Computed example of a mutant assay.
Amino acid sequence: MAIYLTKESKVLVQGMTGAEGMKHTRRMLAAGTDVVGGVNPRKAGRTVDFDNRTVPVFGSVREGIERTGADVTVVFVPPAFAEAAVVEAADAGVGLAVVITEGIPVHDSVALTAHARAKGTRVVGPNCPGLITPGQSNAGIIPPDITKPGRIGLVSKSGTLTYQLMYELRDIGFSTCVGIGGDPVVGTSHIDCLAAFEDDPDTELIVLIGEIGGDAEERAAAHIRAHVTKPVVAYIAGFTAPEGRTMGHAGAIVSGSSGTARAKKEALESVGVRVGSTPTETARHVLQALDAPAGAAPDGAARDGARA
């Protein structure tokens, strides 16, 4: 199985006819994604040829859904138009909106995620690499050739670290990898993915990648303590980040003692999560956890003790 995205998913691309949309639509198609159409009101009625596939362009998301049965949209539109694009998709009834666009103003992100939630649309992102279920479908910009189908679920704030852990653990493979984005406001959280992976019978272990800023990882630790029975391994980026300076993502900023990598590491370790000091060490923790005899994994033992 998988979470959020499967081989049955039918994908629209908002912004498909732009440079980035064209490039990544071609890559998604090559990965086996069922891209059924693009959306651009100014180019409605045209088609675009991608190697061996001709993809129609629709004037609206609603038209695309009515014509193709699409249930996923990937958003590549510029930041100024991203809120309107997601609102349009949610109003049309799309189940999943993957927002790749970076640089969206925070107030727009608040509005688009709230509107989508009210309409029953899950937003992944913004400012994210998207998600991939290897061997089935790829919605976004994650390179599809660095891993294979397997038994690890991955949720990450960082696109680059998503790719690195996928590569480090390529011999085992992944059920689904979700890049949730590193902006201050995102539509899908670590907790959402932890819950979905916990319910996925084909996911045996969960990798969580976090970074400095905010309290998402601390809240994830509390959720793990109460609700997650599968082993979890984590990596937190930003131990050497200077105070008060944004590092990489807009949400990755430490202010005083809030949002530090050390605090996040301690919170996760307190509920039995193994936290690597580097991505490579994190991968080694995964291998050790998967090799542990059933019922004897130190993650589970520590977590049971924490619950008690």
Score class of each variant (00 low, 15 high):
Cys177Trp: 01
Glu281Ile: 05
Glu66Gln: 12
Pro105Ser: 07
Val13Met: 06
Leu5Arg: 12
Gly153Met: 03
Glu281His: 11
Asp199Cys: 10
Ile206Pro: 04
Ile224Asn: 11
Val207Arg: 14
Asn52Arg: 13
Arg42Ala: 15
Phe239Cys: 03
Gly130Ser: 10
Glu63Ile: 09
Gly15Gln: 01
Cys128Pro: 03
Pro143Thr: 01
Gly59Arg: 11
Ala297Ile: 04
Pro79Gln: 05
Ala292Trp: 07
Glu243Trp: 03
Ala292Cys: 12
His107Gly: 02
Gly238Tyr: 02
Gly93Val: 11
Gly187His: 06
Thr33Cys: 05
Ala118Leu: 11
Val11Thr: 12
Val55His: 10
Val155Gly: 04
Met247Arg: 13
Ala90Pro: 05
Gly214Arg: 14
Ser255Asn: 07
His24Gln: 14
Val207Ala: 13
Arg262Glu: 12
Val55Asn: 06
Val106Met: 15
Asp145Ser: 06
Ala30Trp: 02
Gly69Ile: 06
Val13Gln: 08
Leu5Asn: 07
Ala111Glu: 01
Pro41Glu: 04
Thr6Pro: 04
Glu269Arg: 15
Thr17Asn: 10
Phe76His: 07
Asp199Leu: 13
Ser277Met: 07
Cys193His: 06
Arg53Thr: 05
Arg219Trp: 02
Thr240His: 07
Ile180Gly: 04
Thr162Tyr: 04
Gly59Glu: 02
Ala301Phe: 07
Arg170Lys: 15
Ala85Gly: 08
Glu269Trp: 05
Gly159Asp: 00
Pro56Ala: 12
Asp304Ser: 15
Ile141Ala: 09
Ile209Trp: 05
Asp192Pro: 00
Ala263Val: 00
Val61Gln: 03
Val233Ser: 12
Pro293Tyr: 11
Val86Asn: 09
Val77Asn: 04
Ala220His: 12
Thr68Cys: 05
Lys43Glu: 08
Glu204Arg: 15
Ala31Asp: 08
Ala118Tyr: 01
Glu269Asp: 04
Ala283Leu: 05
Tyr163Val: 14
Lys264Gly: 08
Phe81Ser: 14
Gln288Ala: 12
Ala89Phe: 11
Phe58Ala: 12
Ala289Glu: 13
Thr282Asp: 00
Ala306Ile: 01
Thr54Val: 14
Ile191Ser: 10
Asp299Tyr: 14
Ala263Arg: 10
Thr33Met: 08
Asp171Glu: 15
Thr246Ser: 07
Glu211Arg: 14
Val13Tyr: 00
Leu96Val: 09
Pro201Tyr: 08
Val123Asn: 04
Met247Ala: 03
Lys148Gly: 00
Ala241Lys: 07
Asp91Leu: 13
Leu169Ser: 09
Glu102Leu: 09
Asp91Tyr: 11
Gly37Val: 04
Ala196Val: 01
Thr54Ser: 15
Glu102Cys: 05
Ser258Ile: 10
Phe81His: 10
Phe174Ser: 05
Pro143Leu: 07
Thr33Val: 04
Glu20Trp: 13
Val275Met: 09
Ile253Gly: 03
Val273Leu: 06
Arg151Gly: 00
Asp171Arg: 13
Asp192Thr: 09
Val74Gln: 05
Ala216His: 12
Leu96Cys: 13
Val98Trp: 04
Ala241Arg: 09
Asp49Phe: 00
Ser255Asp: 01
Pro242His: 03
Phe197Ile: 02
Arg303Leu: 12
Gly248Arg: 13
His107Asn: 10
Phe58Leu: 11
Asp291Glu: 14
Ser257Arg: 15
Thr229Ser: 15
Ile100Ser: 06
Val271Glu: 11
Leu287Ser: 00
Ala289Gly: 02
Val232Ser: 11
Thr203Gln: 08
Ala267Asn: 02
Met166Ala: 12
Leu268Thr: 03
Val36Pro: 05
Ser158Pro: 00
Leu268Ile: 10
